[in-house]
Every structure is written in structure tokens, then in C-alpha cells.
Simulated assay, not measured.
Amino acid sequence: MDDTDRHLLSLLQANARESAALLARKLGVARTTVVARIARLERDGVIAGYGVRLGQRLEHAAVRAYCGLSVAPKMGSAIVRALERLPEVEELCAVSGQYDYMVFLRCETNEQLDALLDRIGLIEGIQHTHTSVVLSRKVDRRTAVAPPPAA
């Protein structure tokens, strides 16, 4: 991957529906070059798919939280399956340290988060949870970044 690929990826992360022609203008390359690069990045597994990012209105209205989970031995697979069924679970990671898993949760209200945490706590095999509510996001590198100035 070169700088053009990285810049293309940042543009696609900001708006995956951007036309190849507009991407080409922003990158200063031919439209066919953009199409070929996207195809190669998909084929090489660098681009695994396309999704929807929530807009600021919905993002700022959400109650987000990180929840650390300590689980009983040999219960990880069942717990992962149970958490996969909860639409409020946005991300689940196995981690090292004090907890076995970290879950990123997104709810519409504090009451919904409270009820969700009760449901999570009742999942068989979860021994302990610790939740931190997100107050604000200070850095978000998932948005498009302008390319460095040309030398």
C-alpha cells in the first residue's frame, strides 16, 4: 500500500458511497485508477466490506459505554453467542488484563443501558462486569483525513 491507497481508504471510510470520479478528482488520479485500486484492495482483503456510520445527530444522542466482563472458564463461546444476539452490542473484543472481554455498547437512553446491563449480568458464565459510560469522544480517526501537503 502506498500513500494514494491510504488516502483512498480514508476517503472511503468517510463516505463509501462517493463516486469513483469524485474520488479520482480528490486524489488527482484517473477514475480508472481509482476503480482498479478499489478492486485490488477488495481482492487483497484490505477492504472487507462497506457499512453505515451513524450521523452526528444520532451519534450524539446515543448513550455509549464500555463494559468489561470477567467470565467463568470454558464459557467464552456461549457468552460470545449470547452477546451477538444483542443489537446494542456494537463491538466485542477478547482482551488481556483484568477482564476477559470488553464490550462497546450503544443505547438510546440511560434506562435502556441500565436494562441492557441487567440482561448482560444474567448471562450464564458472566462473573463480574464493570461499566464506564462514555462522556465525550476526544479523538476519532475513523473520519477522512486530508492528505499531507505536497512537497
Rank of each mutant, 00 (worst) to 15 (best):
A21L: 14
A48M: 08
I38K: 08
P87I: 02
V46K: 06
P148V: 12
T32V: 12
V139I: 15
D3P: 05
A61C: 06
V46A: 05
Y66R: 04
L11V: 02
K26H: 14
T129G: 01
Q13L: 12
L54C: 07
T33H: 13
E59P: 03
R57A: 15
L116D: 00
G76A: 14
M1C: 07
V63I: 14
L116W: 01
A20W: 09
A16R: 10
E18S: 12
R57H: 11
S19T: 15
G45R: 02
E124F: 09
C93Y: 15
S77K: 12
L117C: 10
E90A: 12
A78W: 01
L58P: 01
L135M: 13
C67R: 02
E124W: 06
V95W: 07
L9H: 06
P73W: 08
N110G: 15
K26I: 04
L122I: 02
K74F: 13
L41G: 04
M102H: 13
S10I: 05
R25N: 14
E124Q: 11
R40A: 09
M1L: 08
M1Q: 10
S96K: 04
V71F: 07
A94V: 14
T33A: 15
S136M: 10
R6N: 14
T143D: 12
V139D: 14
E124L: 11
V71W: 06
I123L: 06
H7I: 11
E90W: 04
M102Q: 11
R81A: 07
N15M: 05
L12Q: 05
L113P: 03
L135P: 04
V71H: 06
T143Q: 14
C107N: 05
D140Q: 09
E84I: 03
H130S: 09
L9R: 06
A16H: 13
R85K: 13
E91N: 13
R43F: 02
S70F: 06
Q98F: 13
Y50C: 03
Y101W: 11
I47C: 03
R53Q: 11
A61P: 00
R142Y: 08
A24I: 08
R81Q: 12
P149Q: 09
